[in-house]
Simulated scan of single mutants.
Amino acid sequence: MSERIIPFAKSDKLVKARLPRSEIQMLAKLVEGLGHLGVVTTTDKVTGEVLFQATLDTWPDLRRAVEQMGLGVEFLEE
């Protein structure tokens, strides 16, 4: 059995994204409800930029969940 071992210091996944300013609060509440997958932080409320923080293992599930929310999230960097 081959397990993928990732050093703790390299396990973080940070992803920048943008969405309509009016949807930031809803995104934050919904992601908070999925707390075991990651967190979202507003980095620029004027332009609607946010930062997702997850792990390499939880990011695919968090991204899928965010895409299904229908809030118009545009991922800028991965």
Rank of each mutant, 00 (worst) to 15 (best):
I24N: 00
S11Y: 12
D57A: 13
D44W: 01
Q25N: 11
T43P: 03
H36G: 02
P7L: 08
I6Q: 07
R64H: 11
I24W: 03
H36S: 14
R21Y: 06
E74Q: 12
I6W: 07
A65P: 00
E32S: 15
Q53S: 14
M26H: 05
T41M: 11
H36V: 11
A28L: 14
G70H: 09
L37W: 02
T41V: 12
E49Y: 02
G48Y: 00
V15D: 05
I24E: 10
Q25R: 08
D61M: 08
V66C: 06
P20W: 02
T47K: 13
I6P: 06
A54Y: 00
S2K: 08
L62F: 05
L71A: 05
F75V: 02
T43R: 10
V46F: 05
L71I: 06
V15E: 03
R64L: 15
V66Y: 00
E32Y: 11
F75K: 04
D57E: 13
R18Y: 04
F52K: 01
A9W: 01
Q53N: 09
K29D: 15
E74H: 07
D61R: 02
T41W: 07
I6S: 11
Q68I: 00
T47M: 13
E67I: 05
G48P: 11
G33V: 04
E3A: 13
T55Q: 10
T55C: 05
G33Q: 08
Q53D: 03
Q68V: 01
A28S: 12
E3W: 11
W59Y: 15
K13E: 14
L27Q: 01
G35H: 06
H36I: 06
E77C: 03
R63C: 09
E74P: 05
E74K: 05
K10C: 04
I6L: 13
L56Q: 15
S22D: 14
R4C: 10
D12L: 15
R4F: 11
L62K: 02
L71C: 09
T47C: 00
G38H: 00
R63H: 10
F8Q: 13
G48M: 01
V46I: 13
L14H: 13
M1R: 10
T47Q: 06
R63D: 06
S2D: 12
R21F: 07
P60K: 04
R63Y: 03
Q68L: 14
K29T: 13
E78A: 14
A28Q: 12
M1W: 03
S22Y: 02
M69H: 07
V39L: 09
L51S: 09
E67D: 15
D44I: 08
V50W: 03
M26C: 04
E67A: 12
I5Y: 14
D44Q: 02
L56E: 14
M26I: 14
M1D: 07
E23Y: 05
E74L: 10
E78F: 04
Q25G: 12
L34V: 07
L27H: 03
